[in-house]
Simulated assay, not measured.
Amino acid sequence: MRLAFMGTPDFAVPALRALHQAGHDIVTVYSQPPRPAGRGKKLRPSPVQQAAEELGIAVRTPLSLRRNAEEHAHFRNLDLDAAVVAAYGLILPVDMLEAPRRGCLNIHASLLPRWRGAAPIQAAILAGDSESGVTIMQMDAGLDTGAMLLRDHVALTPRTTATTLHDDLAAMGGRLIVEALRQPPHPGTPQPDTGVTYVQRLSREDGRIDWRTPATTIDRQIRALTPWPGTFTVLDGTVIKIGAAEIAPGGTPAAPGTVMDDRLHVACGDGTILRITRLQRPGRGMMEAGDFLRGQAIAPGTRLGMEQPDA
């Protein structure tokens, strides 16, 4: 098929490569413009732009698609069979949605209608869902409201992280979009009215640990928000990032946030306990807990999260 591909982050790259490998004619890739990155703040192309250039595909990086008549006309003139959208990050106007003969197909990282919106991977882990997956959706003017063409699921375990789930769903999305385009055109299955949930964009403040919540909640927060936006607590006025933890057996009457021993068992809400296994001080890399404590001891009885500086 004659396609346009629209995506920006790492999540979209496996789908772009899968479509190229399947022999589709990807005439143009749309991606968000290069952004400043690294210590030198040099402009860095998105992962999708880098992959497209490696494949020899032309890339367009408009700042916006709203009221962009020139871009709308260019898109219509591409004479597309379909456009594939995967975490592009820009809203497509209706005239662009309707321009390809088969419309625009979205690779969405959730089992719609659950977790419409910007951060479905993290939301599934935060909520303690038992499964997640990918839905191939026929896009319409709503926010992730289009008919479902194809989907598949994966079980979530107590050790699933945003990183592992991201990689699983990215690969699944590449496989499903190739399969969806292989099928004859069909209207798809309308999303049910029940079970609809929305998730907003994440901010750094979402990573602040509240030790008054149970250890299971904090464990899900750490697994869902690492590496970004990251979870953190405060130690003696300094922000300490938490990279990994595990729920510890037993209970404690200690106040939430209290470091209980030299192995970084920390009291949480409802008398539960969490053991921090990886953490990071400012200006350093993420460390195993033992290595961290050799450089900066944390005495039992210390209360974490008592001060509230900005992340």
Rank of each mutant, 00 (worst) to 15 (best):
Met172Tyr: 04
Thr164His: 04
Glu179Cys: 07
Arg182Lys: 10
Met139Ile: 07
Ala215Tyr: 00
Gly237Val: 01
Ser203Pro: 08
Ala180Lys: 04
Arg159Thr: 14
Arg114Leu: 04
Leu202Arg: 14
Leu165Phe: 02
Ala162Gly: 12
Arg208Val: 02
Ala118Gly: 10
Asp168Leu: 09
Thr160Ile: 06
Ile177Tyr: 06
Ile177Lys: 12
Gln191Asp: 10
Gly207Pro: 06
Trp211Arg: 00
Met139His: 08
Ile209Cys: 02
Ala124Asn: 10
Leu143Asp: 07
Gln191Tyr: 06
Trp211Glu: 02
His108Val: 00
Ala123Phe: 02
Arg223Pro: 03
Leu202Ala: 14
Pro229Trp: 09
Ala245Gly: 08
Thr238Phe: 06
Ile222Trp: 10
Val234Thr: 15
Pro227Asn: 11
Tyr198Phe: 14
Trp211Phe: 04
Met148Gln: 05
Thr213Ile: 03
Ala124Lys: 00
Arg212His: 08
Pro227Trp: 08
Met137Arg: 09
Ala118Trp: 04
Arg175Gln: 15
Pro113Val: 02
Asp152Thr: 02
Ala155Met: 12
Thr157Ser: 13
Pro187Ile: 06
Lys241Asp: 12
Gln138Phe: 00
Pro227Phe: 10
Thr197Ser: 15
Asn106Met: 05
Gln221Phe: 03
Val196Asp: 06
Ala147Asn: 15
Arg212Pro: 01
Arg175Ile: 06
Thr217Met: 07
Thr233Tyr: 01
Ala127Glu: 14
Asp168Pro: 01
